[in-house]
Nucleic acid binder design. Structure first.
Lengths: 227, 227
DNA sequence: GTATTCAATTTTGCATTCAAAATTCAATGT
DNA sequence: ACATTGAATTTTGAATGCAAAATTGAATAC
């Protein structure tokens, strides 16, 4: 009798987690910024209870820092954190790639192929925002094709933390071209279903992304005070 | 003036997260079991607010399942979940091993060495509980020596989810002997600071752990009803 | 005897309230 | 002028209150 259409119902706190996440990742809530419960409650027109529940979750994810009796701050992006996170994401994406090669359907590979082509276009016309989003979508699609929700969840958690930095960072043209080339390789390995190779490329790719980010990070924490 | 002794203050919700986590991992709260807010509030003598905050966090970690308007259940240990989690833990531990080889202090290696010897003793006298705990401590110490809190956090998250299963599973003697041998290799690679080798061993080690667990899992979900 | 309905009860999600802690800021002393 | 005190205000952490949703269970129909 189950037509596998469970009616999706969302709680306020869940919705808030998602929205705050986006606000933080996109820098709408700046690193180091104090989070005023009152203000946010007013903005979203909710009471403090669900908001605070959401903050606890975000704190666990590392997007905000909770100090007892002193409230919540958007966690800063530190070089150390980024340096930490990237190898981990690299390991996770490498595994995802490996699994995806074994498990992805042909349709999924076709879909990723399409995203790839769109991204190549965005690259060609130098549309950074579009490129960024498609890039994200490709990595997400790979993770989905890996058929491992736990893996995906871990990746998303870490990714949320560094996506901010990547969102801010203005990638250089040469590095951008290199990244695009790496993506060509990624797609090739996936199409060939060569898991080992894809894993290696992804690990490298992430290492390069980290390299790109080094240096541009400190500036983004300016004027926020210690947390 | 800072003697780097920040007074540690904990909020109720934080304390609750930790306690519930332990209760779930150790099976005190059984897989599939309904979590009665009322009951737990009475047990810990707190109001529903901090308890609910804690439940949201645990839900995000995957230890409990929250169904809107229908409350919280301890998440079940399914074969699928275990199969999912182990490769991920494997990838994370492999990375941790790699990093630990590069970064561990000699003291840390000595400490792990000591834990290893204690564990060997526990193995010799067939003290399962002691072995289990020391095994846990060794893997934790490795993670700490990797100097990567993010990595550690991810690992702990996943580990909490499968530790339950491992806690319940009654390892066979032959597999136990094999695991002990693998740990000998782990220690050897660490002492030699051979990151690549350690990574490979750990990945294998986790794969074997998974193998051990297959089959003993379904029984543990008995009598809990669908969630 | 089994299935169906619907009112009573319980439980959940969220809002509100309250006490304790932290912050602000004006008053005071040096 | 600058630092220090401490009362007023704000903010936080947690308890309680309340309406909506879900569960229970007794009454009824078949």
């Amino acid at each position: 009798m189950n037509h596998d259409t469970a009616i999706p119902r969302r709680s306020l706190h869940d919705e808030l987690v998602e929205r705050l996440q986006r606000q933080i990742v996109e820098g709408d809530l700046a690193p180091g910024e104090k989070i005023s419960e009152k203000e946010l409650c007013a903005a979203y027109d909710v009471s403090r209870t669900p908001l605070r529940e959401a903050l606890k979750v975000l704190a666990r994810q590392g997007l905000v820092v909770l100090t007892p009796h002193r409230g919540a701050h958007v966690s800063k992006i530190t070089v150390a954190q980024i340096e930490e996170a990237f190898p981990v994401i690299g390991a996770l994406e490498a595994l995802a790639g490996e699994l995806a090669c074994a498990r992805a359907t042909d349709e999924e590979i076709a879909k990723i192929s399409l995203l790839h082509m769109k991204m190549a276009t965005a690259h060609k016309i130098r549309d950074r925002q579009k490129y960024f989003r498609l890039n994200q979508q490709i990595h997400d699609a790979l993770a989905v094709a890996a058929r491992n929700p736990s893996l995906n969840r871990m990746r998303e958690m870490l990714d949320g933390r560094v996506r901010r930095a990547r969102y801010f960072a203005n990638i250089s043209t040469t590095r951008w071209d290199q990244a695009m080339k790496e993506h060509d390789q990624i797609l090739a390995a996936l199409k060939a279903r060569d898991g080992e190779r894809l894993a290696a490329i992804l690990k490298q790719h992430l290492a390069h992304k980290l390299e790109t980010l080094r240096g541009v990070i400190e500036d983004k924490n300016a004027g926020a005070g210690a947390v």
